[in-house]
């Protein structure tokens, strides 16, 4: 019974990890930068959801379209104002810039709404589906399904549409792509904005289950790093399976070792992956020295 419940818990949260990680991995894949502010984009998505819910009400899941639009514009603006000036200046500049951005966002939110914990009140919160001994909370199931749909949708977008193909070409080799008439800066902007939207979507899906507060994104953001490295940096399918695996690792640590030590399980796995299989389980672009 505990085993079944643990697996379900792990998979459900793993889907959300996959969604956050996919946002991170598409930004990395196209722009070759690791975005250290991904967790904060998730936090912003949660605040936007919370604010819209307060203003409009209804079901939080109906807020998905407006949040997509808001987060996309937010992503484009961030790219134009903050990220674009350092394009081509190397890893260190990106790391420091996005870390600066993350603490800035975190603390601006804290400045406006304080360090308080907010939540939205919906009936869906407490509903659950019972299957034998195992119960699945409805918000978790919706988050899992929503995450899988979004990841699949993004995958199709990259494979089938012209913009998606242009982005993949930029990811492959941005110089050659620009010779072929693809504007790399446009691909970068769209990739970054999509990454932000993915984090925002995770925010919508998480808001019915978690409190909204300035630091909520931190642990999710860190977990997403582990997921992308496990799945191979830049690899979308890898991020999906990586998310599910990390969800399971966390759930098993919480069930069988200690609830409070769940993050330790995740990060130990991360260090082991770096040691044993740094290109990730599903491959990606890593150079060994």
């Amino acid at each position: 019974m505990l085993l079944g419940q643990t697996i379900i818990n792990g998979l459900m949260i793993g889907g959300v990890y996959a969604l956050i990680a996919v946002g991170l991995t598409i930004i990395f894949g196209v722009m070759k930068i690791v975005n250290f502010a991904q967790g904060e984009f998730l936090m912003v998505g949660m605040y936007v959801t919370w604010l819209l819910y307060k203003a409009i009400g209804g079901s939080p899941y109906l807020l998905i379209p407006p949040v997509i639009v808001i987060m996309f514009i937010f992503g484009l603006l961030l790219y134009k104002i903050v990220v674009k000036p350092v394009v081509g200046k190397g890893d260190t500049a990106y790391i420091l810039l996005t870390v600066g951005l993350s603490i800035f966002l975190q603390n601006v939110v804290q400045l406006i709404w304080g360090a308080n914990y907010f939540s939205i009140e919906t009936t869906i919160k407490t509903e659950a589906i019972q299957m034998g001994d195992v119960s699945i909370q409805l918000p978790r199931l919706i988050a899992f399904i929503g995450a899988i749909i979004l990841v699949g949708g993004l995958h199709l977008f990259l494979k089938k549409t012209d913009i998606g193909k242009a982005m993949r070409a930029t990811a492959e080799n941005s110089q050659v792509a620009s010779l072929l008439g693809i504007n790399p800066s446009r691909s970068f902007a769209i990739a970054f904005a999509i990454g932000v939207v993915m984090a925002g979507m995770a925010g919508v899906l998480l808001t019915p289950m978690f409190y909204v507060y300035p630091r909520v994104g931190q642990l999710f953001g860190l977990t997403a790093f582990v997921v992308v490295v496990l799945g191979g940096l830049g690899n979308i399918t890898g991020a999906l399976f990586g998310g599910l695996i990390i969800g399971l690792v966390e759930a098993f640590t919480a069930s069988y070792v200690a609830l409070d030590l769940a993050p330790v399980g995740t990060f130990v796995v991360f260090l082991l992956v770096l040691l044993l299989k740094p290109e990730g389980i599903f491959g990606g672009g890593v150079r060994k020295t």
Binding site: L96, V99, G100, L101, I103, A115
Partner: peptide, 17 residues
């Protein structure tokens, strides 16, 4: 308490750019 941290986040961004 976020104020001071927000400011050095902003300074960090500005310095990097």
């Amino acid at each position: 308490g976020g104020a001071s941290t927000a400011i050095y986040g902003l300074i960090l961004i500005l310095v990097i750019i």
